[in-house]
Design a protein around this nucleic acid. Structure first.
Lengths: 332, 332
DNA sequence: CTGAAAGCGCTTACAG
DNA sequence: CTGAAAGCGCTTACAG
């Protein structure tokens, strides 16, 4: 910039004005500055600008896994809102590891992102307190913050799970298995609660062997499903706690004779084209991201309300797999 | 930092040393500084650090659409490599709009990302020349740069398409339709070339009505597929130019009597569980991202070779849809 | 309409 | 082992 000013024979401030298209520069001066800019190949350094201005026009997004199809539309929605506000998106995957989540979040804070959208892996976010009081707006998505009071946008995991299980019960099932995410994760606990509530309302007993929380990698889910579908008290239906579990459950069931019923949490592409179509409790990932991002920018524009929690409804979509009746030898 | 130094009764440089855990500080001094840091809630401002150091430890990733399942694993792979090198990922979607691509790329350059991984939407990247000569390492992925000489990592679109179409021909098809992406996009042209090559090698005539390039939104693809499958010279098989097209083609075919054959470019989740399973030419999205990111960091570490183009092989996976013979009335 | 001075919060190069 | 000075490349607040 100094070189540009020298070459154009003007002051630094004038160059700054031209670069930012501020008013108050004669057309003639502007032309000289523009010429110097192209001649010297000048490119404004936004780091310096940021240092001076205080705002970085960037927001951080921390999620579990960029490669998970559930997070694609969510990220995209956050990005679009950020773009509308002239902000870039810096993001990273926690790989469901709380230590890595914290490392990422703090790295983002050190970069002075204006705000943070977090899909937490951990359940203790007190490490964020200094950052939040220093002014980093933060909104949690999909799962609430742990041990701090913070904005959050969630899906109705409890209600959705309850509806899913009630649906299976309405189709005659009495022995229903639940395979969910790790118990550290809020949605896993909520969906388990919903499962229990539906069973309890229907007056059905629950066997501990019908509930399995843990990692959602295929091998773990496969083992859990096989165990529930075999043994002395086999389940006649499965409720899968998220899209990763559902996909593996579909594979397990396709490979077995005498199909058990299945309802999955999260919709997924082509679920309707499988045979049978997969009945799901759908949540709107894009809407989740959009709502969170809007909340974030409202905070950034100075909204000074108490932290809020927004819960978005889920929707049961019947496609066939959830309407399969219990196998004959199992009918009550 | 000044406040911390004052409170601890030391110089600025000592605080800097503690913050960066550099050697040469007495344990006692260090303790005093640490105390001041926590008491004052000090958080290092990386913007200032970046301004001074020159390197931002961040790389930009510009892709078409974060929500497209093809880019999820690719992004994740780039992120992992960046993480191994201590860099963060800033990313954005071009939405297949060349102007938006350029806007994003230049915004990333103004932030002084160390390097750039670009899945281009446009076909003219001369706007990047000043940036590249200023030292921004750049690697293109999935599609090469246009009108500049730059590193690129591609899948073998031509070979993969040729194999796909040859596979259909080997199963008796003579009238084969190709539905691809917009002709501005390199992969669309290459896959069309592969289609033509396979037809030509087999001595089969090609009807212009059997080739349709354009947007990959469902309505356009649906119309194109319906047109090819109807009319005076209906095709008996479809070759879908990417995963978005394939998914719509699966829907179209499922809704029609007398199934046409289908081979898709790009593998996708659950392709094997559909009925019939969908035969695809698979490319390894994660490998594409990983290779590109490694290339980028090699450049950042000073590798000063000529720009290279790496082409990764594709793999045909037969699952049923590509092995359906032509309908009877159509057999030659 | 234009510019000189001060400063954003760090690090570098140097001296003690 | 420790620190004062200069500077990274911009913008802000002010004066002319």
């Amino acid at each position: 910039m100094k070189d540009v000013a020298a070459r154009a024979g003007v002051g630094l401030k004038t160059v700054s004005r031209v670069v930012n298209s501020e008013p108050g520069v004669t057309p003639d001066t502007e032309r000289r500055v523009q010429e110097a800019i192209t001649a010297l190949g000048f490119r404004r350094n936004d780091s310096a600008r940021i240092l001076r201005k205080g705002r970085t026009a960037s927001v951080g997004l921390v999620l579990e896994d960029l490669a998970d199809p559930f997070y694609g539309p969510l990220s995209r929605a956050v990005e679009e809102v950020a773009r509308d506000h002239g902000a870039l998106l810096i993001n990273g995957s926690s790989a469901e590891d709380p230590a890595r989540e914290q490392e990422l979040v703090l790295a983002l804070c050190a970069r002075r992102v204006d705000g943070l959208v977090v899909i937490p892996a951990g359940d203790d976010h007190r490490y964020l307190e200094p950052e939040i009081s220093a002014g980093v707006a933060t909104v949690f998505v999909d799962r609430p913050a742990g041990r701090i009071n913070c904005d959050a946008v969630l899906s109705d995991s409890f209600g959705g799970a309850r509806d899913a299980v009630a649906h299976l019960i309405a189709h005659g099932h009495r022995r229903i298995g639940f395979i969910g995410d790790q118990p550290r994760i809020h949605t896993a606990i909520e969906r388990l609660r919903g499962y229990r509530a539906a069973m309890s309302v229907a007056g059905l007993p629950v066997n501990e062997a019908w509930m399995s929380l843990g990692a959602t990698d295929p091998s773990r889910v496969l083992a859990a499903a096989e165990a529930m579908l075999s043994g002395p008290e086999p389940v006649t239906a499965l409720f899968a706690g998220n899209n990763r579990v559902t996909v593996t459950a579909v594979r397990v069931l396709a490979a077995r004779p005498g199909r058990a019923a299945l309802v999955g949490f999260d919709d997924f592409e082509l679920a309707d084209l499988l045979s049978p179509g997969v009945t799901v409790v759908a949540q709107d990932a894009a809407q989740l991201g959009r709502t969170a991002a809007n909340m974030l920018f409202r905070r950034l524009e100075g909204a000074d309300e108490e932290p809020r929690q927004i819960v978005l409804p889920t929707r049961l979509i019947a496609r066939g797999s959830g309407e399969i009746p219990p196998a004959h030898r199992v009918a009550s």
